[in-house]
Simulated assay, not measured.
Amino acid sequence: MDSFIVRYCFAASIALAISAVPASAVEQNCRFIPAKPDREACYKRQEEDLAAKRKPAAAAAESTTLETLRQLRQDDDAVYRSINNICRGC
């Protein structure tokens, strides 16, 4: 029982440590670069990285939305087919 609690606490602390690092921490590193061209290059790299991360997420969200709509349509068709087989005037 105690080893389970220790493992659970360890896993929870690791998860907390990973999620506690804010995304803005990476952005603040550029702010402290004294040379303006280097600082601007750093900001540009960050923008490119951020844009690259957002593109696949948007495409994946769109495909999952289409798949969800397609699945809902198939479910609706199955329900309509089953309703048509019910005798209403018997």
Rank of each mutant, 00 (worst) to 15 (best):
I14R: 06
I14Q: 03
I14S: 01
I14P: 00
A15H: 07
A15T: 09
A15Y: 11
L16I: 08
L16W: 12
L16V: 08
L16T: 14
A17G: 13
A17H: 10
A17E: 03
S19V: 12
S19D: 06
S19C: 14
A20W: 01
A20F: 03
A20L: 06
A20C: 13
A20G: 13
A20Q: 05
V21R: 14
V21P: 04
V21F: 06
P22S: 13
P22R: 04
P22M: 02
P22I: 00
A23Q: 14
S24M: 02
S24K: 03
S24W: 05
S24Q: 09
S24P: 04
S24Y: 07
S24E: 11
A25G: 12
A25Y: 14
A25S: 14
A25V: 02
V26Y: 07
V26N: 10
V26I: 13
V26R: 07
V26M: 08
V26D: 15
E27G: 04
E27I: 05
E27Y: 07
E27Q: 08
Q28A: 10
Q28I: 00
Q28T: 02
Q28V: 01
N29F: 15
N29M: 13
N29K: 15
N29W: 14
N29P: 02
N29S: 09
C30S: 02
C30T: 00
R31A: 15
R31I: 10
R31W: 06
F32C: 09
I33Y: 03
I33H: 03
I33W: 01
I33R: 00
P34K: 02
P34V: 04
P34S: 08
A35I: 03
A35L: 03
A35Q: 06
A35F: 12
A35S: 14
K36I: 09
K36G: 09
K36H: 09
P37F: 01
P37V: 03
P37W: 00
P37Q: 04
P37R: 01
D38V: 06
D38F: 10
D38Y: 09
D38W: 08
D38N: 07
R39V: 00
R39N: 02
R39P: 03
E40A: 06
E40Q: 10
E40T: 07
E40L: 11
E40W: 05
A41Q: 09
A41P: 02
C42E: 00
C42H: 01
K44A: 14
K44L: 13
K44W: 08
K44V: 08
K44E: 13
R45G: 05
R45W: 05
R45H: 12
Q46A: 03
E47R: 01
E47T: 05
E47A: 13
E48A: 11
E48T: 11
E48V: 10
E48Y: 06
E48S: 07
E48W: 07
E48D: 15
E48R: 08
E48K: 07
D49Q: 14
D49R: 11
D49H: 06
D49M: 15
D49K: 09
L50F: 03
L50I: 02
A51P: 04
A51F: 01
A51H: 03
A51C: 06
A52K: 08
A52D: 10
K53Q: 15
K53H: 12
K53N: 11
K53V: 04
K53C: 08
